[in-house]
Amino acid sequence: MLAALQKWLARLTLGVSSLLVAWVTGFILYGVGARYFFGSSPIWFDELARYSIIGAAMIGVGAVWVEGAHMRVSILEKRVAPPLRRVIITYQWVLTVALAGAMTWFSYEYVGKVGFFKTPGLQISRSWPVAIMPLGFGLLFLLALLNGPKAMRDQVVEGDQ
């Protein structure tokens, strides 16, 4: 039940994140086109593109964690005795849940603090883009919590940049 919920949530968020990547690519192309055909692109152009990419990245953080695709080194973890390995895995889990939880709270509070700043392009309250953070870290918190202290999936391929 919990595992199914986790799986479903991860797929959904990664789907949203993929759609945002597609949208940004299209949107930047629109910006280039607008400049050539209409002479100028809207003043909020690069701001919206930036916030969309940040959205894609933050919303996916939890799902990527579930997939075990965050960069990490798992050599030592595999070579220690099983009891120690269990300790390490529990520690990894507790720490991830705690940090994700703390960060969700901090960034939620921060959303309130920056409300009176307006973004220079879109002229919206800075709270809107910043709200992506509690959302992203909240998802990480939830997905990690649902996971329980299990060994993280191994990366098939380690990405760099």
């Binding site: 400049r35 002479g39 100028s40 692109s41 003043i43 152009f45 690069d46 220079p120 392009g121 002229q123």
Partner: peptide, 27 residues
């Protein structure tokens, strides 16, 4: 008239447009 300028906020866009040019954001 008809020129493209770098503009970094809506006030600059308004200025350029008043003079017949357009404003585009470039970092």
């Amino acid at each position: 008239d008809g020129m493209k300028f770098r503009a970094m906020d809506p006030s600059q866009v308004a200025l350029y447009e008043a003079m017949g040019a357009s404003g585009t954001p470039i970092p």
